[in-house]
Computed example of a mutant assay.
Amino acid sequence: MTLTGYDAAAVRRDGFAIVENVADSATVAVLLDELAAVDGPGAIRRRGSVHAVRNLLEAVPAVRDLARSAAARALVEPVLGAECFAVRGILFDKTPDANWKVAWHQDLTIAVRERREVPGFGPWSEKAGITHVQPPAEVLRDMLTVRVHLDPCGTENGPVQVIGGSHLHGRLSPEEIDEWRDGNDAVPCTSPIGGALVMRPLLLHASSASTVPDHRRVVHLEFAAGDLPGGLEWHGRC
């Protein structure tokens, strides 16, 4: 399957791409229905409403189907290769009760089955009962994120903003992040329903709070190209 306008070379060069029509209306409807029923340790609530859900690959069959779909594979395989697989799924939702902003950062942690002391891996943390760790930068360079929008996301909905090319420079110090932020233009990644932002984890990104009191639901899928060293295992593999 090919997706019109998708340029894998641009993802490698710029660290991101915005693609429409990754999930059709029927797929979005099924995802919304199954996500609405999710509760338990992976659901994060604020003022009674769920604004994030971790462990989606385990908890929601429709998310597993999305990660395995021809459309998702068409985005990921040209960058990571045909043997790649999904390793984590998260729901993010900005609502009037959970309308946060996120400072400029890189995505530096992965979810694993259990802690093993392997050189270059650390520090360690736990989120929703799942072990997380910061791996070496080379692991993150062989990963790709696909963020599928289940609601329209315009400039008023607190979209992710990115700084193109920043992923090519490894892990950045706080001082280097400030330099990138001050010296480069940020690109707001708006999307219609069913569209997706494809991005490298090491790409600098941020988001502002939404100015519109409505949902901004996004299924965040992470893909990897291979196994982890030293007996470490991805927590989810789909």
Results as ranks from 00 to 15, higher is better:
R64G: 15
L57P: 07
R217T: 07
F223I: 11
W100E: 05
V30D: 11
P123V: 10
A209T: 05
V11E: 13
V212N: 12
Q161S: 14
G42V: 10
V76K: 10
V118P: 00
A70E: 14
R45G: 00
L3P: 09
D178M: 08
E58L: 12
I193H: 01
G164V: 07
T211P: 03
L57S: 03
S69Q: 06
K101L: 05
H167G: 06
A62S: 15
L202S: 05
P159L: 10
R115A: 04
A43W: 07
R45T: 09
P135C: 04
A206G: 02
I193W: 01
A9L: 11
H169G: 01
E126W: 04
V30Q: 08
A10M: 08
R171A: 11
A71C: 03
G165C: 08
H149Y: 14
C84E: 03
C84L: 03
E58Q: 14
A98V: 09
A26I: 08
R200G: 05
T27N: 00
G164M: 04
S210Q: 07
S166E: 08
V133D: 01
P192K: 01
S208H: 14
A59S: 12
R13L: 14
S49V: 13
P123A: 10
A225D: 14
V76D: 10
E20I: 05
W234C: 02
N21W: 08
N99R: 09
T211D: 13
